[in-house]
Design a protein around this nucleic acid. Structure first.
Lengths: 339, 339
DNA sequence: CGGGTTCGTGGAATCGATTACATCGACGGG
DNA sequence: CCCGTCGATGTAATCGATTCCACGAACCCG
């Protein structure tokens, strides 16, 4: 592969001049410029990004560590992150933690070793020493979706409180009184917050959330199935199951089907995170939709702001309820999902 | 960030010795080794991968350019690729081409500039000069799922011919005679092959595939919807629609629903590529399943073989039919999907 | 016409590693 | 006792860029 020296030789100038042309530094004669560009063309020269990074201490690369690529929510997030980053002149390296803290650490370490310019993380747990150190050491960092309390890093996320309240009101309006939740891991903010929001919304309707109606899941489909089976085995099973993410909702649907029961006639189902497939399930699933694309873009903007020396602020956007048929017929059809 | 010089100073040795310890070169005294390791520990030193790559001309990184991250098939492929690569000591940088040749080129160029050790591609089109040049220039490369004819690069893919034959036989057995297909882009091998396999399978059953029953899609949901609407507008619409990928099947399902028709009673639906959600749609969708994880792993192994100087062979694995309910009741329930 | 800018250019240092080569001491065999 | 060998270590070149600094030529102005 041709290097800058080859180009310099071909054009009959020094490497310094070639570099200046390539970085369009003002002080280059028109003659030298054309000769260099011609040489670049004939040699098919492309600057070595590795060498450039070593010298400039910038990789123009962002690291994105997400909890689970197979979760459509995170896939969409990753996609919007890459798009916005590309628009701003950055590349993205994605690390999939698969909800495993050890894998998360592996990727963070790997990305740090590669000297990425900044890190976007949706933490799987409460934060390993490695990540906390990185944050303290001044690595530009932004949390997206989930975050770690007490760490001085901007957070870009959706606030689901209002939407959860809307959901519970909707369920209450349909006559449901016994509502259960499949929670996410307590180590994650989203895992805790969604339960809290649910409990508060129930209280506002004068309902309680007994411990038996809080099932511990891990954001994966299998846990949704397991927890739902537990619910169905209760002497007085819930009338509604609210899954804290889309994969657990899928598992719940499986469990309900496996018993020969039907949604929503025998038991209602709702989920946090809306995804395209929820329109096509049987029945279509009522869900709380996050502005995923906007979150990804905002997170990148905040991170790039930090990298380039600007403040870089936290952003919280509202989630919203999308009513479909999985909780029973809606008395006010005008509110039906538009998708 | 501490560099190797700082470690050398702290340990009271030269940088060469530090490097030797880090790469466990045999000729280092036990004493020097412990002093270096202690210095590494106290300084929290991590080798700069950028510098190392510049010197060794290896990045231990694979590039993966896929056609569409939002397609669950490719997501799963990406995941298995990353897993296998990690097991072999490589990282993966994913580029999402979004079925756009210009974006595909952008990513290929970017990855090449970063001096990745090898490239895994599922080409969106017939191959840009850029990619052909890279292949000719000797960049280790492997095609996965889709490929470009006439380029001397190993191909790892699934062969769907037998499964398509099974599907058509199944459909014929259910009494369907008017079968249509939503094809993928003719520029892709999978786009062409699936139509061919379908046509041959029909011929084997004594059926024809009229032009009106070949709709041109682009592997995206919206095109599936559009093509299906065209089919439904025909004076004699098909009894079955076979979508060449899962997203177009989703669009087809939308179109059918929008007309107030039902699957499979009014029209049957089948898809190439099986995904977890197909179990949960209404009705569950009959599909042709590829051994996606195995394809990803085999592709990585072939690529790493090439990189490390071994042959690196093409691999073709069989796809298989998974019968569900979207084509009508199955006369032999024993064949039902196991998932 | 002379001194101070400005402009274009090249030489060389530098980033942080790896590694060929030189050096030096210890040790073993003849 | 001397010399060759080997093991441990340091010096310095190198990878491919960027960029500071110096230098010479041209130019401007008084």
């Amino acid at each position: 592969m041709a290097s800058i020296k080859d180009v310099a030789a071909e054009a009959g100038v020094s490497v310094a001049t070639v570099s200046r042309v390539l970085n369009d530094h003002p002080s280059v004669s028109a003659d030298a410029r054309t000769r260099v560009l011609a040489a670049v063309e004939t040699l098919g020269y492309r600057p070595n990004a590795v060498a450039r990074s070593l010298r400039t201490d910038q990789t123009h690369t962002l690291g994105l560590v997400i909890s689970d690529v197979m979760n459509p929510y995170f896939t969409e997030l990753a996609r919007s992150v890459e798009e916005e980053a590309r628009a701003l002149g950055y590349s993205v390296i994605i690390g999939n933690a698969d909800e495993r803290p050890d894998l998360q650490d592996h990727h963070v370490r790997n990305l740090l070793d590669r000297r990425i310019d900044g890190l976007l993380v949706s933490p799987t747990d409460g934060g390993s020493p490695l990540m906390l150190d990185a944050a303290r050491a001044g690595t530009p960092m932004v949390f997206v979706d989930r975050w770690i309390p007490g760490v001085d890093v901007p957070v870009v996320r959706a606030d689901g409180r209002a939407a959860v309240r809307d959901l519970v009101t909707h369920l209450h309006g349909l006559g449901h009184r016994r509502l259960a939740i499949i929670a996410g891991p307590a180590a994650t903010t989203t895992g805790r917050e969604r339960v809290e929001a649910f409990r508060e919304a129930l209280a506002a309707c004068g309902l309680e959330l007994p411990d038996a109606f809080i099932g511990q899941g891990d954001f994966q489909a299998e846990s949704g199935r397991r927890v739902t089976e537990g619910f169905l085995d209760l002497a007085e099973p819930p009338e509604v199951v609210f899954a804290a993410d889309n994969l657990m909702a899928l598992g719940a649907l499986d469990a309900v089907r496996a018993r020969g029961l039907r949604v929503p006639d025998d038991i209602a189902l709702a989920a946090f995170d809306d995804i395209p497939w929820f329109v096509h399930t049987d029945p279509p699933i009522t869900a709380i939709a996050q502005p995923t694309g906007e979150l990804g873009r905002a997170a990148v903007r905040a991170l790039v702001d930090r990298i380039e020396g600007r403040p870089g602020e936290s952003v919280t956007l509202p989630a919203r309820l999308v009513v479909r048929r999985s909780c029973g017929e809606n008395p006010t059809p005008v509110q039906r999902s538009t998708s």
